[in-house]
Structure formats: C-alpha cells, structure tokens
C-alpha cells in the first residue's frame, strides 16, 4: 500500500514561517517533549532549510492499521500529506498503491480517503449534500452515489441529521461526517490526520468504535495521533516520530516491552519534594524518571516496589501502580532526560 525510503520534505525558512502563520494552533499546545525539527544550512545563500520530514522509511501492507505517533511539530501531518499526494517530497522514494505520487497524483488520490485535521466541510450545505458533492469531485455517477450515501449515513450514525445544515452539527458529528466523506469513493486506503483531536471523551469513543468497524471490513488505515491511548486502541503497528525522524517502530505491545518495564509506579510527594526524595530511592525499579509533578518508577514488580518506597520512610501524597503504556515509551524515546534508578 505504502512504501517510503529516505522520504524527506524540506522547507526553506521563509516557506515554513508562512506555514506556521497559517496554523497558529499547532505550536501553542506543544508537548513538553517537543523538539524543533532539524534545521540545516543550505549552500550558497547561507539560508536555512527546515527538514519537516527527515529521511523516513515506511511500509504499510494492505489491511493493516498503522499509526504515526508524535508530538505537535514532529512531522506527522507533513508525512500524511505526502502520502495523500497533496504535497510533493523533496527527496527519497515514495510509492502509494504501487504508484509514484510525483507522476500519478490524481490516479492515486482517486483511491484514497482523506480525513484532514480540520473538518473542511461546507457548512452551508446539508450533511447529505456534503457527501454528494464530494463524491462528484471524484466523478462518481449520481446513481452510484445515492445508495453509497445511505450506507455512509448509517455508518456515521447521521441518518436523522441527513438534511440538516452542517453548521448545526456537534464537533463529533462533523468529525464522523468528515470520515464518511473520506469513504465516499470506497477507498482502499484511508488516511486520518488526528481523527479525534478536540473531541470530548464520549465522541472519541463513538469514533473509535466506527474506526474499529472499518478495520474489520479490511480497509487499510493510516492515522496520526498524539494520543497514546488512541494509538494503542486503533493501531496494530506504529512508528513514533520526533523532529522529523522515526525513532521507533513496532506493535504497541512490542514497543512497550522493548522500551519500558511491565509496570510503572507513579508517586507524588508534592512539587518540591519529588527531587528531594529521588536520591533516596536508589535501587528501586529498573529506572526512575522525574517529571515536574511526579516520579515514575519503571519496574516489573510495582506493588512490592511501592511497599519498599514506603518502607524507606517516604509516604507519597498519591501513589498508583499501573501497566506501562505507549506514553512511557514515548517519554523514553523523545529525548527526555532520564534519571537512573
């Protein structure tokens, strides 16, 4: 479905400044682990080049659900737009559905479903009209679209909203409509760029349920997300991106096994005391990470390690023993300073 080798997208500094201006929200909610994409000098004019995507390799097989996980600015959306054949790569190889997007963009896009980060719906048209016009962009005949739209309205659970204007819909409904719109051409590959960002928990769960159902029907899914739980829920396999590079790849469970202990003890001693307590916990767990508000003890024996902490005379304000998650993998891999336990 997708094959990328040394895929790279570079922007000259001026061009990237324009992009930042257009999407101011991208940087504001930057995660603490965010790193700036690599900047390299170019030759003669002494200008700078921003490597939004810096030589990544990707392979996605048919029927897979594949995730690209990363903080804001890691290069996820840029990668997605190159895969979606709306952004040309600077260098490297890229094959989508067996074709090169540099030469066969329209043919590739005819078989893709794209769910962009922003809904980009026509709010003046009704739900049904949005699906109809979008199907027509692909040149699909009206006779084929009418029954297809009924299926999609069922799938998106929007039958009772079919003749309402889009501006009247909730955020979750708009998102489901955008996904339904991306399915109108019966794509073999569906690209979802941060499908649940900005939705409330209930709307997210409804959406996950819909995407699960899609997975079962054999549609290949590629999604970006900065939600670890979403990646664990939806992706069979994923890559973690940081500063335009892929820093890890694998199934969520394998990544957790490789990069984290089985369990994590989260203890809080109060904001100022965490770092005071830290030196006294030497020897507990495999390693300990200090966050601004808590200590994370990576271990395979959470309960007994917690007892050991208490036995050493440090009573945490709150304590939690949990299974390790992708969040822990992400923390480990994206260059956070780790403190040996």
């Amino acid at each position: 479905m997708i094959r990328a080798r040394a895929l790279t997208k570079a922007y000259s500094r001026a061009a990237s400044a324009k992009r930042a201006e257009r999407r101011p929200s991208e940087d504001t909610s930057a995660k603490r682990a965010e790193r700036r994409p690599s900047e390299v000098s170019t030759g003669s004019d002494g200008g700078r080049t921003l490597l939004a995507v810096d030589g990544i390799d990707l392979d996605v097989a048919a029927g897979e659900s594949f995730g690209i996980l990363g903080a804001n600015g890691a290069g996820k959306s840029t990668t997605m737009r190159m895969i979606g054949a709306t952004l040309q790569r600077t260098s490297g190889e890229l094959t989508i559905l067996g074709r090169d997007p540099a030469h066969e963009g329209p043919v590739i896009r005819a078989h893709l479903g794209v769910v962009p980060q922003q809904d980009t719906l026509d709010t003046e048209l009704t739900v049904r009209e949005n699906l109809l016009t979008y199907g027509r962009y692909f040149g699909l005949p009206r006779t084929a679209l009418v029954p297809r739209i009924e299926e999609l309205l069922d799938f998106a659970q929007l039958q009772d909203k079919r003749d309402e204007k889009v501006e009247a819909l909730s955020g979750g409904m708009k998102r489901r409509l955008t996904i339904a719109r991306g399915l109108v051409n019966d794509p073999s590959l569906l690209l979802l760029d941060e499908p649940t960002t900005g939705l409330d928990p209930q709307a997210r769960h409804i959406l996950w349920d819909r995407l699960y159902q899609l997975r079962e029907t054999g549609v290949t899914l590629v999604l970006t997300t900065h939600y670890m739980d979403e990646a664990e829920q939806l992706c069979e396999r994923l890559v973690i991106m940081d500063a335009g590079r892929i820093v890890a790849e694998g199934a969520p469970a394998d990544l957790i096994r490789t990069y984290s202990s089985r369990e994590v003890v989260e203890v809080r001693f109060g904001t100022n005391r965490n770092s005071e307590v830290l030196p006294h916990l030497h020897g507990i767990g495999d390693r300990i990470e200090e966050l601004p508000d808590r200590l994370l003890v990576y271990t395979d024996t959470g309960e007994s390690d917690l007892q050991e902490i208490v036995a050493r005379g440090f009573m945490p304000v709150t304590a939690l023993v949990r299974r390790a998650s992708l969040e822990d993998v992400f923390l480990r891999l994206t260059g956070r300073s780790l403190v040996d336990g």
């Binding site: 979606g84 794209v114 962009p116």
Partner: peptide, 14 residues
C-alpha cells in the same frame, strides 16, 4: 473560511 479547496484537492481534482 472553511478550507474546502484543500479537501477538494485531496480528491482526484487538481
């Protein structure tokens, strides 16, 4: 306003 052209460009349209 609604960036609909970007959605249109994601189809086979140029």
């Amino acid at each position: 306003w609604n960036r609909l052209f970007f959605a249109m460009r994601a189809t086979s349209l140029s």
